[in-house]
Simulated assay, not measured.
Amino acid sequence: MKYLLSLLAITFLSTSTVLAQKLENSTLWKIEGNGLDKASYLFGTIHITCDATLESDVIIALDETTQVVLEIDMDDPEMQVKMMKGMYMKDSKTLKSMVNDEEYIAIDSLFINNMGMSVKMFENVKPFFLTSMLYSKFIDCPMQSFEAELIKIASEQNEEIYGLETIEDQIQVFEDIPYEDQVKELVRTAKDNMAYDKANFAKLMTIYSNENITEMLDMMNDDSYTSIADYQDKLLDDRNKNWIPRIKEYAEDQGTFFGVGAGHLAGENGVINLLRKAGYTVTAVRDSE
């Protein structure tokens, strides 16, 4: 269970919003101006990958900053306890009450074959969390995490790790999205034994390796990619807007390295555009610079 909770903590998927303009292909952006004494950096991660090796430009940005801020404070010793409290459905809802018998059998078989346990053990867990438990099976390699690498370097540099939001904030997102809509994702995954998910994760990782954050947003904005794309405001827009005052606070205090899911970067309500609207100069950083 501890392993599953750790996995869930790094697999909150991002969906997307309407494009404002095509941004340069880069996952690393420099934040300057608007009264900042020192530059900060914004790095777009992918939560599940086969290779989380940090490129030289990212390492330099980490060296030039003095604290790391992720979506949530992932070294919070109480994080797993808080997640455990928030992963269950309310109002006595159960998975079995939201799917038909055929769908339930398919989901149960998927869990037995891939997780080594029956889904009956997680009968009242939110459907999104059930799907998240399977994410590491969507890739044909040992799962790596950019967040884990960032935490490792921060620790080596004796730097603090903070969060732009709390784990309770993230859990609330999946309380606001109807369970019935969340379960559609799980049913699709079970019916084709993860074939669709594996193909899409492979495509997403290729897009990420090309640092094409605009194409990533286009893909994630497609409702055929995710059944909860209609809830972009809760998944992305509202969170991005809430992050800007926090980013301002951290960056004004000291040079800060921000690491968030790459799906949050592009678009009209993406973090890059919102920071620019707030008066900051945000420019792409390329490894050749």
Rank of each mutant, 00 (worst) to 15 (best):
M1N: 11
K2P: 02
L4K: 05
A9Q: 08
I10R: 04
I10M: 03
L13C: 09
T17C: 13
L19N: 11
A20W: 08
A20V: 11
Q21R: 15
K22M: 13
N25E: 13
S26I: 02
W29Y: 04
I31L: 02
G33I: 03
G35I: 08
G35T: 00
L36T: 00
K38C: 04
I48K: 01
T49D: 02
D51K: 01
A52S: 12
D57K: 10
A61V: 09
A61H: 00
L62F: 01
T65E: 07
Q67R: 13
Q67Y: 04
V68C: 05
V69M: 07
I72M: 15
M83A: 06
M84Y: 15
K85H: 12
G86R: 01
D91G: 08
S92K: 05
K93P: 00
K96A: 03
D101V: 12
E103L: 11
Y104S: 11
Y104F: 15
I105D: 13
A106F: 11
S109I: 13
I112E: 15
N114S: 13
N114F: 12
G116D: 05
G116T: 00
S118R: 07
K120T: 14
M121Q: 14
K126P: 05
F128W: 13
F129S: 02
L130P: 05
L130C: 06
T131P: 08
S132E: 07
L134N: 00
M143E: 14
I153T: 02
Q157I: 08
N158A: 12
N158L: 12
G163V: 02
E165V: 13
T166I: 11
I167C: 09
I167Y: 10
Q170N: 15
Q170E: 15
Q172P: 12
I177W: 10
E180M: 10
V187W: 02
R188F: 11
T189H: 12
A190I: 06
K191Q: 15
D192I: 10
N193P: 11
N193L: 11
A195D: 14
N200A: 08
F201T: 06
F201W: 10
K203I: 03
L204A: 03
T206P: 01
Y208R: 04
Y208Q: 09
S209G: 11
S209L: 11
S209P: 05
N212W: 00
T214H: 07
M220S: 01
N221A: 15
D222Y: 09
S224T: 15
T226A: 13
S227W: 09
I228N: 08
Y231E: 09
K234N: 07
K234E: 09
L236Q: 10
D237F: 10
D238F: 13
R239E: 12
N240E: 11
K241R: 15
I247V: 08
I247T: 01
E249H: 07
E249Y: 05
Q254C: 12
T256Y: 03
F257M: 12
F258C: 06
F258H: 01
V260P: 07
G263M: 01
H264Q: 09
G267M: 00
I272F: 04
I272R: 04
I272Y: 00
L275Q: 01
L275N: 06
Y280K: 06
T281K: 11
A284S: 03
D287G: 01
D287A: 09
D287F: 04
S288Y: 06
E289I: 04
